[in-house]
């Protein structure tokens, strides 16, 4: 039972990161139909900023702000330079464009920084752990859980109470009508990218604080997982992204904790097979986006 609770806490911490990443993907997808492969590279950029801040002995809270800010700026720049020229193209064109951007950024990191994994200096408190209700939980995991909750509350407030957030939801339902209502396309799309950068930045800080290293491919794997989480939850649906992120994390953590030793090698295929199974019964995901049903004929 203890092991179960312990692993559940781990799953919540991991699920939070997946959820934040999947949310970042969903925000952009719901508005412009782009699945952003380069989302992981936003994470990597944040990771490198943390690394350089550690080397320059910048106070950690400031380093976190700089890292998140860098991801936001990078996301906005990415939209301006790479995605604006292909705006409105087919999903495949957008996807391929983002794939190429991801590839270029990865190669740039390898050439300009290092192909190898680099250590990141973190405050000692993050690697300590505390005992809550008999469970030993790392401070970094608690930080991840709290940050996720704060981000989800913030996002909910932003999307329901803030003008830009409401405009984004309108644009997600019907972009052309939203534009006729006086919503600026550029503002909404740039806003969506900034938001996705923010989410990627927070996820990166949480990810790095549990691993204390960064490499050129750092963002690639978690974002692959976030893709799967986004599909699992329902592509383009924000609530679905959160649900999918947590469900995927629970599947992964429980499999790695409870799968017999001989089967551990097949952990990833089995986990994905479970996801496929869920999708067979709910092809549009756990909480499908409304826009799927609203296509005009």
């Amino acid at each position: 039972m203890d092991l179960f609770l312990q692993q559940s806490a781990n799953a919540v911490a991991l699920g939070g990161i997946y959820a934040l990443l999947a949310l970042g993907l969903a925000v952009v997808f719901s508005i412009m139909g782009l699945i952003n492969f380069a989302h992981g590279e936003l994470m990597t950029i944040s990771g490198y900023v943390l690394m350089y801040c550690g080397i320059a002995a910048v106070p950690f809270p400031l380093a976190v702000i700089l890292a998140i800010g860098a991801a936001i700026l990078a996301a906005i720049a990415m939209e301006r330079i790479a995605f604006r020229p292909v705006r409105g193209s087919s999903g495949a064109t957008l996807l391929v464009t983002s794939f190429a951007i991801a590839m270029i950024l990865q190669m740039l990191f390898q050439n300009l920084i290092s192909a190898r994994s680099q250590p990141v200096l973190l405050p000692a408190i993050l690697s300590e752990s505390v005992t809550i209700f008999g469970l030993i939980i790392g401070v970094n995991k608690i930080a991840a859980i709290i940050s996720t909750i704060v981000m989800l509350i913030f996002l909910d407030w932003f999307m329901t109470k803030q003008k830009t957030g409401i405009a984004m939801r309108a644009a997600a339902e019907d972009f052309s009508i939203a534009r006729l209502m006086g919503i600026h396309a550029n503002t909404v799309i740039a806003g969506a990218f900034a938001l996705s950068g923010l989410l990627a930045g927070v996820a990166a800080v949480l990810w790095v604080s549990q691993r204390a290293s960064v490499d050129p491919l750092m963002g690639f794997t978690p974002v692959l997982k976030a893709f799967i989480a986004a599909i699992l939850g329902g592509l383009g649906s924000l609530k679905g992204a959160v649900a999918g992120g947590f469900l995927l994390a629970f599947i992964e953590v429980y499999l790695s904790a409870f799968l017999p030793h001989g089967m551990q090698e097949f952990r990833e295929p089995i986990g994905l097979a479970i996801v496929v199974l869920v999708l067979l019964f709910r092809p549009n995901g756990l909480l499908p986006a409304k826009t799927l049903a609203a296509e005009k004929v």
Partner: peptide
């Protein structure tokens, strides 16, 4: 299975398929 999904969701499903196949190949020593 893949056929049940549409558009971009199907694309990501194929990505999942690649990861599954890779995992099985490595595990099936």
């Amino acid at each position: 299975a893949v056929n049940r999904l549409e558009g971009s969701a199907a694309t990501i499903a194929t990505l999942g398929m690649l990861i599954i196949a890779h995992g099985v190949t490595i595990g099936w020593r």
